[in-house]
Amino acid sequence: MKVTNRLTHIATKVNFEAAMTEDQLKAAFESKDLASFPAMLDIKERTEEHVQMLSLDDLLSFAKASGVAAVTFDVTYFPHADDAEVARQLRGLASDLDISADVIKDVCAAEIQEYLDLDAKRDADVPVHSIVECYVGGTAFAWYGLSDYPRLKRVVLEKLAHGGQKAKRDFVLRASRAQVELMDDEDMPADIVLR
């Protein structure tokens, strides 16, 4: 039983089971005598609409006890990151933070290189996440398996959040420099005074 005396949601760390390969998932489904079908499932788009179970065995036992005959699943692998992947992730992060990707790349160059080095050591044949899903009475129930892998967004945000005065100063200097360069490039009206 879960009891709370708080009216606000408290974020807590949740330990997910490791992601599984398609063969491992199929063996788990067969052990519960459940049919399975591959599907295009996305954690980011679907987590808000699911009842999430932290154990695959619990989900499959629940599905079986509820009369579900089949489940859907998805297994995702990530290739090793390269410069194009870093650029893609930085564009997304820059959009989220409303700052230039070049500024992030400049300030967090060491963290980006550390991310690339860590990711190069990762076994790309191990899935990064697996999803299993079933519907009972119109409600979606899901299990997510996640394997640990380097995340550029995490290391960059940690640097920016805990970078102290150096990160703050670097951002201010680069933003100021970018603003001056922008003003140098444009034909500024004579009546504008820079403060």
Rank of each mutant, 00 (worst) to 15 (best):
K166H: 12
R88K: 14
A110R: 11
L34D: 00
V75H: 00
D74Q: 12
D184E: 11
I192D: 09
K64L: 02
V14H: 07
D23S: 13
K153T: 12
S36N: 05
V3D: 15
L25R: 00
F141M: 05
A63D: 02
Y144L: 08
V193I: 10
M20D: 05
E181R: 05
L25S: 00
R154I: 09
L25A: 01
V68T: 02
E85G: 13
D58Q: 11
K159C: 00
V128A: 12
L146Y: 01
E186Q: 11
V132A: 00
P189K: 05
M188G: 04
M183Q: 11
S31R: 04
S36R: 03
K32C: 04
A87F: 08
A175V: 12
N15I: 09
Q52W: 03
I10M: 07
L90S: 02
A63T: 03
V180R: 08
G138H: 05
D23C: 12
D125A: 15
A65Q: 08
M20W: 02
Y77D: 01
V3N: 15
E45Q: 14
Q179A: 12
D148Y: 11
D96K: 07
R195T: 13
N15H: 12
Y144M: 07
D184V: 05
Q24N: 11
V172C: 10
E186A: 08
V51Q: 08
D74R: 07
F37N: 10
Q165M: 13
C134N: 02
D117P: 10
V132T: 01
S130N: 05
V14T: 11
V155C: 04
A28D: 06
R177P: 06
S36P: 06
V14D: 07
E114S: 09
P79N: 03
K105Q: 12
D123M: 05
L97V: 10
R195L: 15
E48C: 01
D23K: 11
D125K: 14
A27E: 06
D82E: 07
H9W: 09
E158C: 13
V3C: 15
V3T: 15
V156M: 06
E133Q: 13
F29K: 00
N5C: 15
A84F: 15
M40T: 14
M183V: 07
D191F: 10
A70H: 09
F29S: 01
M183F: 10
L160E: 06
K168E: 03
E49V: 06
Q52T: 06
P38G: 06
L59Y: 02
T21K: 00
T8H: 13
L146V: 09
G137M: 03
S176K: 08
A63M: 04
S55C: 04
D106T: 13
R46K: 12
A70K: 08
A178Q: 02
H129E: 14
D74L: 13
I131Y: 13
A28G: 03
P150V: 09
A175F: 11
D74P: 11
